[in-house]
Design a protein around this nucleic acid. Structure first.
Lengths: 274, 274
DNA sequence: TGAGTTCATCTCGTTATGAGAAGAACGAAA
DNA sequence: TTTCGTTCTTCTCATAACGAGATGAACTCA
């Protein structure tokens, strides 16, 4: 990993010139997902400046690497960009309960017309949040229904889709959705889309929105209660029934499991196997 | 993502100065795993130069970003570094049959004493390969038994371990092993550790080496044959029995499944759940 | 030749899953 | 207020999957 062998470490550090290397920039981009009106939504910003001005993009920006500003870690950069470009406050505010994990890194030459840019993508699961306010370089910011973006399996957008995504963000978003679908199978992260207390029908609505298919209510109920540590009862009952009738569902909160065992497998997996 | 709004994209590109940004460098590091003598091994190089001279590290190096050399994509950089530092030839040679996937990106400030370095880690599964030859900046290169590195769950090495790992490579390797264990559960990638044709006992040995526990031979056999697309029969039989006796096992090759359904879950999962 | 090992298959009891049904609780419309 | 349709929650039942153990044949090594 070192450019050339040297005898002494301090001598090496003194003579080291970072600028002698190829110029690269590192950004973070965030795929922030939430459930609104029973449908999966992603947080997007409309780009104010070039390149791709006017198009929609994932919130993100350059990592403060330590030159003029203080160096920040990658997850911190993700939270900062999310806060800056959307007006949502950071860890102690609206973004306090979100789950954040690294999704992947995208660095193909030419993915950004300005220069070689390596983008570290993060994936966030959030409970229902207020509408964002555009800030930073963003001309606009909004929660957008994922279904309205016309994404294809290959990471493109279908022709005729009104909201076009900049850069390779359609691919990043597609990968993020795929990851979210997988994570719901074997981790309890569906609870990250809910409030602190939730009902089993609410939890089922999360699965149905992310997976895009209806689940058998009875079997789902049995399964959630039988997996150890998935949810724990609060003893209380929701104060209202469903909006179209039905009894008041009981309230639960997230349990202490980090993995679901056995997993909650989605029904229509057969097609994707080959 | 743009530094400041501008009216025209070409005007923007002309005036853009990459050097105005914080200096960052991007590297790739590869966690290359294989099975030798029934035990899981990882490819390591001994560092010739500073920093961490003399310590062991994952093979890796700077990404050619496009300044003086031609820009290369991240996976290409991973293959190139693997080839350069170990003497193993590239895609058409010994490295032709390896599975390569992105593992994660490590960019904490201070992880490299020279400057801010963002490292994109890749994970490789390889069948048994020849001993590597040191090249590039590496003073030595070898397949090292993972068990001999004294890795802890928290990504450190136990005190007293002779081969110390440079940088945060103990953490990267720990994450890679965790990922490998997971992948064996729900993908047919265990076959990537085998040759083109293999027996079911050989495949079981892969699982036992990666998971570090013995499996029930009969149930494993039933399971592998019952999962559609995992393996397909060649009709042939191995020309030798096991080294300690037993009949000649039949030969199989990898099937066309990309996902195992139902998955092959490892037995002792209960402990890791909470 | 004999002893010990391993492959491959089978059995059996337990657990998990999919599909459907039923009673009770509720909202909304008549 | 009554009625009707909806939803929560719990059951049942048939099927599939799994863990543990057993068996006989095939092979290596002493």
């Amino acid at each position: 990993m070192s450019p050339e062998p040297m005898r002494d470490e301090s001598e090496f550090l003194a003579s080291y010139d970072p600028r002698a290397y190829d110029p690269v920039a590192v950004t973070v981009d965030v795929v922030a997902l939430t459930i609104r009106d029973g449908a999966l939504h992603v947080l997007l910003v409309r780009r104010g400046g070039a390149p791709y001005a006017g198009m929609w993009a994932l919130p993100g920006g350059f990592v403060h690497a330590g030159g003029r500003r203080e160096a920040e870690d990658l997850p911190d950069a993700a939270v900062r960009e999310l806060a800056e470009e959307t007006g949502l406050s950071g860890k102690d505010g609206a973004l306090g309960r979100v789950h954040l994990e690294q999704l992947g890194t995208y660095g193909a030459p030419g993915r950004d017309p300005r220069m070689r840019i390596i983008s570290v993508a993060y994936l966030a699961f959030a409970p229902e949040l207020p509408d964002p306010e555009a800030g930073g370089d963003a001309a606009d910011a909004a929660w957008v229904a994922v279904d309205a973006l016309g994404l294809t399996e290959s990471g493109d957008q279908r022709p005729g889709t009104t909201r076009r995504l900049a850069f390779d963000h359609a691919r990043i978003l597609t990968d993020g959705l795929e990851r979210a679908r997988d994570k719901l199978e074997y981790t309890p992260l569906a609870t990250a889309f809910c409030g602190a207390e939730f009902t089993i029908p609410e939890l089922r609505a999360v699965y149905e929105a992310v997976w895009g298919e209806e689940l058998h209510a009875g079997n789902f109920h049995r399964k959630v209660l039988s997996v150890p540590g998935f949810v724990e009862s609060t003893g209380a009952t929701s104060d209202k029934g469903g909006r179209r009738g039905g009894p008041r569902p009981r309230l639960y909160r997230a349990g202490d499991a980090r993995l679901l065992h056995p997993a909650l497998l989605r029904p229509s997996r057969e097609e994707e196997i080959r």
